[in-house]
């Protein structure tokens, strides 16, 4: 891994280059975690549909709330993005000349994905909190005492989504650090 990098040895500090290469594996691992997290988040919230009978059937679905729809859309995008970037990382492993440029693009796109996933987690959590606690100032009653399974799914999905956002932050840190390690001191 550390030896197939003649380009950096000639152009910049030789000591920094192998470290940069090693980070690429962590990068792929983190991207895979992001993919797994978004997949789990989407699947869990989509399968959370619950219908209760009191005595008429009253279903609870994620698509009844715009915030949850946004959540699902955002994490679908994040999952797709992570697949594409995993492939790009693996593909570019063979051509180190592209790596530094790719790292810069990765920071751009990671920052965007971080914004999307963080706002999705925030919006989903805000609605879920109102659902859990209710709000007597505006007379929004809590619904989680009725839709227990739905709320559990939403809560789990939000937790996984939060994890995904944290992974996105870590990705930016890693990319910034590995691009930093390539810069001459």
């Amino acid at each position: 891994m550390a030896t197939d990098n003649p380009e950096y040895k000639t152009s910049s500090t030789p000591a920094a280059a192998p470290a940069g290469v090693d980070f690429f594996i962590f990068d792929v691992i983190l991207r895979f975690l992001l993919f797994a997290a978004s997949l789990v988040a989407v699947v869990v919230i989509v399968t959370g549909n619950q219908t209760i009978y009191l005595p008429f059937p009253r279903p609870a679905k994620f698509r009844y709330s715009p915030a949850f729809v946004y959540f699902v859309a955002a994490f679908s995008v994040a999952g797709l993005y992570s697949i594409i970037t995993i492939l790009a990382s693996l593909f570019v492993k063979k051509s180190p000349a592209l790596k530094t440029k790719l790292l810069l693009y990765f920071i751009f796109l990671d920052a965007l994905i971080l914004g999307i996933t963080a706002s999705a987690t925030g919006s989903g959590a805000a609605v879920a909190y109102v659902g859990l606690k209710g709000n007597n100032h505006v007379n929004w009653n809590k619904i989680c005492n009725v839709y227990d399974k739905f709320c559990r799914h939403v809560g789990g999905s939000l937790a996984v989504g939060l994890f995904g956002s944290v992974v996105a932050v870590l990705l930016i840190w890693l990319s910034a650090y590995s691009i930093h390690s390539r810069a001459p001191r």
């Binding site: 925030g122 919006s123 989903g124 959590a125």
Partner: peptide, 19 residues
């Protein structure tokens, strides 16, 4: 980067309740 995450989540939360 941390502030980006924090601010975006705050925006998302307020916007969801606002909607």
């Amino acid at each position: 980067a941390f502030m980006v995450a924090l601010l975006f989540s705050g925006n998302g939360a307020a916007a969801a309740v606002g909607v």
